[in-house]
């Protein structure tokens, strides 16, 4: 293993991210290698300083500003969501009406238009082909009942 590999492990060791056996190997190496030992000490010193320096603190009022912003944003969000709902419902209704209308013009049902298949032959195959439509058959049936 190279010195660079050991030095990478120093970083892991100091972060508590190195497993036990690798840590033992590393510590054994450090007793024999002054260069890596210096890196170990330098990194330890750097970590100590970084941990105790409070860099980049926000203003004390930032949390209050955030909360106020959320209160305003919530009202705006609620309005915009209602607005979207109101706008969307008529659009979907219009699409449904158009789909039915187009289907009627094409002589197909909405199901036929959506499935891309023509269901009429399947229905008609159930009836005897004697030149009568389904409506004729139903009406005849009703007339027969009434005449009895």
């Amino acid at each position: 293993m190279s010195h660079l590999d050991y030095q990478k492990r120093i970083s892991l060791l100091q972060d508590g991210e190195l497993n036990e056996s690798s840590a033992r190997d590393l510590l054994a190496h450090l007793t024999e290698c002054p260069d890596c030992m210096r890196v170990y000490e330098d990194m330890g010193s750097l970590n100590g300083t970084l941990a105790t320096v409070k860099l980049s603190l926000p203003d004390g009022s930032l949390a209050s500003k955030v909360k106020a912003g959320i209160a305003v944003g919530r009202r705006e969000f609620g309005y915009s969501w209602n607005f979207v709902l109101l706008k969307q419902v008529p659009v979907w209704a219009l699409i449904a009406i158009l789909a039915v209308g187009v289907g009627n013009i094409a002589g197909k049902t909405l199901t036929d238009a959506l499935s891309g298949q023509d269901s009429t032959p399947k229905l008609e195959s159930l009836l005897q082909d004697n030149g009568e439509s389904l409506t004729d058959v139903v009406l005849d049936f009703g007339q027969g009942e009434n005449s009895q």
Partner: peptide, 22 residues
């Protein structure tokens, strides 16, 4: 409940700021 979210804001504002600042 916005009040509960407010507590989350109090807890994590500094950390979020440090990340953003860095």
């Amino acid at each position: 409940s916005q009040a509960y979210f407010g507590e989350l804001v109090d807890r994590h504002t500094t950390l979020a700021y440090r990340v953003a600042r860095s």
